[in-house]
Each structure stands twice: as C-alpha cells, then as structure tokens.
Write a protein that binds this DNA or RNA. Sequence first.
DNA 1: TGTACATCAGTGAACGCGCGTTCACTGATGTAC
DNA 2: TGTACATCAGTGAACGCGCGTTCACTGATGTAC
Lengths: 219, 219
Amino acid sequence: MTDTRTKTPRERYRTQVRAEIKEHAWEQIAAAGASALSLNAIAKRMGMSGPALYRYFAGRDELITELVRDAYRSLADTFRTVAGAGAGAGGDLAGLAHALRAWALDDPQRYFLVFGTPVPGYHAPDDVTEIASETMAVILDACAALPSDRPAAPFDAHIEGHREWAAGHPAAPAVLRRALTVWTRLHGVLSLELAGHFTGMAFDPARLYAAELDDLLER
Amino acid sequence: MTDTRTKTPRERYRTQVRAEIKEHAWEQIAAAGASALSLNAIAKRMGMSGPALYRYFAGRDELITELVRDAYRSLADTFRTVAGAGAGAGGDLAGLAHALRAWALDDPQRYFLVFGTPVPGYHAPDDVTEIASETMAVILDACAALPSDRPAAPFDAHIEGHREWAAGHPAAPAVLRRALTVWTRLHGVLSLELAGHFTGMAFDPARLYAAELDDLLER
DNA sequence: TGTACATCAGTGAACGCGCGTTCACTGATGTAC
DNA sequence: TGTACATCAGTGAACGCGCGTTCACTGATGTAC
C-alpha cells in the first residue's frame, strides 16, 4: 500500500472501472440471482474481453465478496442515517423498519445476497460480521429507547447468558429479545414478500409489515 | 394414460428408477443447493450415462418441478399427520410449529427450495399453490381453535377484504391475521437460523423459536 | 411351450455452449532524466 | 521541453471443464400367437 495521498489518474481510472464492473454485476444479479454471476458475461456487456477483468478482481469469488461487503455497508449506512435523524422513542424503530423495507424493495436480490439462501460454494469474509453487528447496534439502540413494559419471558434468562453478540451494549434482556424479534419478524414478512409467496394472496404486504411493526412497538 | 390397474414389472421398475433419481437429486441439492442441480452429475453417481435420464424426465426443469412438488407434498402430509393427532387447542399449533422446525432442520435445502430465494430461471407449477393452501388450511384450523382475546388491529379490516387465499375457511379476521403471523414469524426465525445468521451469536435458536411460538399462543 | 415380434432401457458419440482462468503479447499512458 | 524507459490496461488464443440435449443404435425384456 504505497499511498501517495493524492490520487494519480491511473488510480482514479482503476477505481472507476472497478465501480463500473460492480454496477454491471449488480444488474446481472438483479436479473438472475447471485449464483448466475459470470465474469465473462460482465466483460461482454462492458465491451471488454473476459480476461481484462482480472486486472481489477482476482477472480469471481473476490468480486462476490466485494458485493456482499458493499451490500452490508449500504444497509449499515442507511440505518445510521435514519438513526442519526433521531426521531426519538418509537419513531426511531419505525423509521428503521421502513428504511429496511425500502432498502429491500429497492433491490430484492441484494437483500437475498445478505439475508437469503447462502450462495452455494461461497463463504462470507470475516469483516462482514462486524458490519452486521453495526446494524444490530442501531436496532438495539432503538429498542432500548422504547418503554419496556413487556412481561418477562423464559427466553430472557437464556439470552442474558449469551449476550456477546450485542457487543457490550448495556441493554436489559427484554431489550435484547425485542431486538432479535424485530429482526426475525421483519425479515419473515420481507423475505416471503420478496420471494413472491404473497402474490397469490390479494392482501397488501406493506400492511402486514406495518401490523408486525405496530405489534413490536406496542409491547 | 392407458391404465391397466395392475402394475406391470416395467412400470414398477420405472417408478423405482424415477424415485432413485430423485433421491440422488436431493442429495445433490443438500450438498450444493438447487441451482447446482445437474442431470449429468446425477447420472454419473448412479453409474449411468447422462442421456439415460431422459427416459424418466423430460429435462432438468421437469425434475426440479417434481422435487418442488414433493417438498410441498411432504410438508402438507407432515402437517396433516400432526393435525390428525388432534391435541386440541394450543397443542395443535405448538405441534405444527415443532413439526415445521423438524421438517426444516431435516433438510435445510428442501426448506429453501420451498420458502427460500427463488431458483433463478425457474417458475413453479400451478398445482403447488393448491398444496400450499392445504398447509395454510391446517394452520388456520389450529389458529381458529385458540382463544381469541387479541385486541383488534387495523390490519384486520384490510385482511377481511382480502380473504380469498383462506379458500373459504370461516375464520374471523383476527384468526386470519394470526395465521399469517404464525407463518411469517416462524419463517423469520427458521430461515435466518438455516442460513447460518445466528452462528456467530451464541444463543440457542430453538429457544428463540420457542419464545416466538409462546408469544403466538398467548395472544 | 416355443417362436416372431414389439417395446423400451440404456449407450456412446456428438453438438454447441459458456464458464473460470492462464499466458504471451501489444499498445497506450505515465515517469525520470 | 524532449527523449528513453517503465508501468500497466486490455487483447486473443488457448486449456480443460461440465452443462443440457439430440440422435442413431444395441440389447434385453415383455407380449402375442
């Protein structure tokens, strides 16, 4: 990493082409899913020959890793922006939930890349778990700000003993539980909606999502 | 369909080989996911040449269709068996929930084939929605048997106007809502667990699942 | 029971395809004196 | 400012692979008289 602080034109060009490759990769993923990602196909669409991409990525795996990282990063940034706006109390959690849904609908395949069926031969790099815990921290904050008149559940005792994932967040067990259920319940509705499991049923998924959010806010 | 009622030896052999092909297909899916399913690879494992499989399936798509159908069928059968045992009231729903989890853990890729990220180029046949609504009917029955002291939600009015998916089941809106949340909440926990999103966190997913079930039973 | 015929499972060769990846090379862009 | 050199983006050919699928064919199994 010989960093000369000021970017040379070549460096500028490199990062630009890298970004363009990733854009085409996202388009391809949006069209046919992550398992259909092909370096040659991307190169063809960019009007380049296949091997040219190896100047920018060591191989297919590194490209996917980069995309996964970007997806997590994007969600974490979205969350931090919403949390930074600071509506306070229930407003925060509601804002996060709506931001999550908007983020998911904006690019369903990106959502699936992060939260969906694992990509067959691929294993995520370590640092994404760090970014993931960033998003969890934001949810924890929002949950901690809510009035906690929930009745204690048997699960509270268990989660109290396994709170390492909260990364030192000083939250009561009931808050940890609420944060987890926020995650699983919103994901439950979202993933089924994005996978098309509600298409046969005529109701509006947004309203079911809102109903689940209400339930999470009220108790 | 010239049906001679009694099975000829050839018919017997055909159905047996078909079943064996499907078994190998499931093994392959369990190992690398549905998008990696390959007819040639199956043939090789069976000690046959690739084209031989075309005696039994018109092509890759027909095989996948058959597997999807079998998966739905299997879940519907599991549900009906549990419901048939008839524990009554909350016991039914609890039994269904545990059966669902066992069914999912038994073969995660089968669960993903049904409820996970849609297989890229593939579109499910029509009759699976029928089988899917069979499983929903069982859930609806179990929910209808529960005491319904839940407060009305805004969503109830909406779902009342879109109850076609319940296939004529005479359930109150609150029951329809409960059935939907049973589905989405259990799926929320299960899919994240199967995708490995809890592995970093030390808590026991089974307990979170149980906690969600308790919440669904209590109100 | 025995023979002639029809059915059908399975083979091997072949087609065209796209994939990831390597390699030696060309030509343009930037750098040093 | 001008020239010699180094850097590096991109090409085209090639490798080996596995895929789905077709086709003409062989050989075994079942059927009809």
